[in-house]
Lab assay of single mutants.
Amino acid sequence: KNAAQIVDEALNQGITLFVADNRLQYETSRDNIPEELLNEWKYYRQDLIDFLQQLD
């Protein structure tokens, strides 16, 4: 998997990933985040941060 796929997957589930103060953050109206997504975000944290910062 790559960062773009993970960001896309999150968006499809109503979750927006973004970077604030060099930390990976998310916004969602969901009550909870599936644990497998959280684990994936932790595992790919630096890739996601790098990818999202390139988009800014």
Rank of each mutant, 00 (worst) to 15 (best):
K1R: 07
K1S: 04
N2F: 09
N2T: 15
N2G: 10
N2R: 11
A3H: 02
A4S: 10
A4L: 06
A4T: 05
Q5K: 08
Q5W: 06
Q5C: 07
I6R: 02
I6M: 06
I6K: 01
V7T: 04
V7L: 07
V7M: 05
V7D: 01
V7N: 03
D8V: 13
D8C: 15
E9M: 05
A10V: 02
A10I: 02
L11Y: 11
L11Q: 09
L11A: 12
L11S: 08
N12M: 14
N12L: 14
N12W: 10
Q13N: 10
Q13D: 05
G14W: 05
G14D: 05
G14I: 02
I15H: 03
I15A: 03
I15L: 03
I15C: 04
I15D: 01
I15P: 00
I15N: 00
T16K: 15
T16I: 15
T16E: 06
T16A: 07
F18V: 06
F18R: 06
F18G: 04
F18H: 06
V19C: 06
V19G: 01
V19E: 03
V19N: 02
V19L: 10
V19Y: 14
D21L: 06
D21F: 07
D21E: 08
N22H: 08
N22C: 13
N22P: 01
R23T: 15
R23F: 09
L24G: 01
L24F: 04
Q25V: 11
Q25G: 08
E27T: 14
E27Q: 13
T28G: 05
T28P: 12
T28Y: 05
T28E: 03
S29Q: 13
S29A: 12
S29T: 13
S29I: 10
S29H: 11
S29K: 13
R30Q: 08
R30C: 07
R30I: 08
R30L: 12
D31L: 11
D31R: 07
N32W: 13
N32K: 12
N32D: 14
I33M: 04
I33N: 02
I33Q: 01
P34T: 10
E35W: 09
E36N: 10
L37P: 01
L37N: 03
L37G: 01
L38D: 03
L38Q: 06
L38F: 09
N39F: 11
N39A: 14
E40N: 05
E40A: 06
W41E: 00
W41I: 10
K42Y: 13
K42C: 15
Y43E: 11
Y43M: 14
Y44S: 04
Y44V: 03
R45D: 06
R45S: 12
R45C: 14
Q46K: 10
D47M: 14
D47W: 06
D47I: 15
L48C: 00
L48F: 00
I49D: 01
I49H: 03
I49G: 00
I49P: 00
D50F: 11
D50E: 13
D50C: 08
F51V: 02
F51N: 01
F51A: 02
L52G: 00
L52Q: 00
Q53E: 10
Q53T: 14
Q53K: 13
Q54A: 12
Q54T: 11
Q54L: 11
Q54H: 12
Q54G: 13
L55P: 10
L55S: 11
D56V: 12
D56S: 14
D56P: 12
D56M: 13
D56F: 08
